[in-house]
């Protein structure tokens, strides 16, 4: 978020210079070729959302086309009172926060490891990046069938291999549905976080670290007072991009659990309301809630993270 805020601050126009009418006109002539792109940008980014806002206030079910009209906030009331949708909101928040947090922490550990020189680093790095390159829906299928399957999946295969024929054979997906979805997402997102944090580690000024070491700082102190503050903006960037994508996650939920067993998040629920119940009004209202929610989560999560890190610097 800071990245965005700073960017906005930088975009602050300098006080406009006094220019004559003719000069201004000439300037617009020079600018003209770029205008279509801009107008498109404004219109196209905002129009569908405005349309969504309007539809969210309407009574509109395509199975019942005659009964179409203004509904006021009925759809929003439905979103917040419908137990399914309410639990979908909770699931979305839980899923996003867990996945972003766990993959950031794991990504940090991996980045710290890869920042050191050791034999076979290149190989380890390649192995770690691999999950990021799997098409998400393929990753979801892979976890569902190749790993979680109680009959021929890898997890139970390894358990059998380790403990013999009477090893426990848990039903992963029905036993812990939300964790099953989260694990697959963490697996895919950790490499992404690692790449960002590794770039951050490698841009760290080495002389300060060297100086601290000479002054007798322990490895932990170097990490806490030098590395972590330096990584703050990289952590924020990872959290921002991660939350944007994971709030929207559809593939994993749709594939692994089909939204069952309490794992339906809002994007999935919207899809269902739209595609199966054909309730356009309510789907739109839920969509508006997702947007507001993701902006709130992203802002709040980043505030918390950066305030924590700021305290670290002071302490």
């Amino acid at each position: 978020m800071t990245a965005v805020r700073e960017a906005v601050a930088r975009a602050e126009p300098k006080p406009p210079a006094r220019t004559g009418q003719v000069k201004a006109a000439a300037r617009w002539v020079r600018r003209a070729p770029l205008l279509p792109a801009l107008i498109f940008t404004i219109v196209v980014t905002q129009l569908p959302f405005v349309a969504t806002l309007v539809i969210s206030l309407m009574r509109w079910n395509s199975l019942d086309p005659t009964n179409r009209g203004f509904a006021g906030v009925d759809n929003y009331t439905a979103v917040f009172t419908d137990p399914d949708l309410r639990s979908a909101i909770g699931t979305t928040v839980l899923l996003t926060v867990t996945v972003v947090f766990v993959s950031l922490v794991l990504g940090l550990v991996l980045a710290l490891l890869l920042d050191r020189k050791f034999a076979g680093r290149g190989l380890v790095r390649t192995m770690l990046i691999a999950p990021f390159l799997v098409v998400p829906v393929a990753a979801a299928l892979l976890w569902k069938h190749a790993l979680y399957n109680p009959e021929y999946g890898l997890l139970n295969g390894v358990l059998t291999w380790l403990f013999g024929a009477d090893a426990p054979q848990p039903e992963w997906i029905s036993g812990m549905p939300l964790i099953a979805v989260e694990a697959s997402l963490v697996w895919q997102w950790t490499p992404f976080m690692m790449l960002i944090l590794l770039a951050g580690l490698q841009s760290r000024p080495q002389d300060a670290v060297e100086a601290a070491r000479i002054d007798g700082a322990t490895a932990w102190q170097v990490f806490r007072y030098l590395t972590l503050p330096h990584l703050r903006q990289y952590l924020e960037l990872g959290a921002l991009l991660g939350s944007i994508y994971i709030v929207q996650n559809f593939d994993a939920v749709f594939t692994i659990t089909s939204g069952g067993l309490g794992t339906a998040n809002l994007p999935y629920t919207i899809y269902q309301t739209f595609y199966q119940a054909h309730d356009y009004g309510q789907a739109s209202a839920a969509g508006v809630v997702v947007v507001v929610g993701s902006i709130v989560i992203a802002t709040f999560a980043l505030r918390v993270v950066s305030s924590l890190l700021r305290e670290e610097v002071r302490g």
Binding site: V8, A11, T45, Q248, V290, V291
Partner: peptide, 21 residues
């Protein structure tokens, strides 16, 4: 600045949200 903020806003818009219109 306003246009830039609109772009950032649109970036956070999940595709499912504008799917209906």
């Amino acid at each position: 600045n306003t246009v830039f903020l609109l772009v950032v806003g649109a970036m956070m818009l999940p595709p499912q949200v504008v799917a209906v219109p």
